[in-house]
Amino acid sequence: MAGVIKIEIAESAQELKKQLNFSQNSEVKERIQVLYWLKTNQVRSTGALASLIGKH
């Protein structure tokens, strides 16, 4: 299926959440947020992910 994301994230959801809280740089914070959403299965496609972060 096109647009379905299949990656393996080594960090745990708790570790990503901790990094998200301590991140100061907005670009890094956005990337960690994307990893967190993927790890917690809140998004499954690139379209949904792009919509959430406001990019296309």
Rank of each mutant, 00 (worst) to 15 (best):
I32G: 05
K29I: 01
L20T: 06
A50D: 06
N21M: 11
H56W: 10
A2I: 10
E11H: 12
R31A: 08
E11I: 02
T46G: 07
V28S: 04
K29L: 02
Q19D: 11
S26R: 15
R44V: 01
Q42I: 11
L20K: 14
K17P: 01
V28A: 09
Q42C: 01
I32Y: 03
A10W: 01
N21G: 13
L38G: 10
G54E: 06
K55I: 00
T40L: 00
K17F: 06
Q19C: 02
E15D: 14
R44M: 03
V28Q: 11
V4Q: 15
E8H: 12
G47Q: 14
N41W: 00
I32C: 02
K29A: 05
R44K: 04
G3A: 04
L16I: 06
T40F: 02
K6Q: 15
M1K: 12
A10Q: 09
Q19H: 03
G54A: 08
S12Q: 11
S45T: 13
S51A: 06
G3E: 13
M1S: 03
L49I: 05
I9S: 12
V28K: 11
G3T: 08
S23N: 10
Q24H: 12
Y36F: 13
V43Y: 07
K55W: 00
S23H: 07
W37H: 09
I32K: 09
H56D: 15
I7C: 12
V43P: 01
K55Y: 05
A48P: 00
N21S: 14
A2Y: 14
R44P: 03
I9F: 10
I32L: 07
V43M: 05
V28F: 03
I53H: 08
I9H: 14
G3M: 10
S12C: 12
K39Y: 02
A13P: 08
I9P: 09
K29N: 08
Q14R: 11
A13F: 05
V4C: 09
E15H: 09
V4N: 12
I32N: 11
S51Q: 01
N41E: 05
G54N: 09
T46P: 01
Q33L: 01
V43A: 01
E15A: 13
I5H: 14
Q33A: 06
A2R: 15
A13R: 03
A10G: 12
G3F: 02
I9M: 10
A13T: 13
I7R: 15
N25Q: 10
S51F: 00
V28D: 05
N41F: 05
Q24V: 02
T40P: 08
W37Q: 04
A13C: 12
F22T: 15
I7G: 15
H56N: 10
E27C: 00
L52C: 04
I7M: 13
M1D: 03
N21H: 09
V34Q: 11
V28Y: 04
A50Q: 11
I9L: 13
S45R: 13
A10C: 07
K18D: 15
Q24R: 14
S23Q: 15
L49Q: 08
Q33N: 07
I53A: 03
E27I: 01
E30G: 01
Q33T: 04
R31C: 00
G47W: 04
K18G: 01
Q33E: 14
S12T: 15
E27M: 10
V34D: 09
N25Y: 08
L49N: 06
A13W: 02
Q42T: 08
L38Y: 03
K39W: 08
Q42V: 07
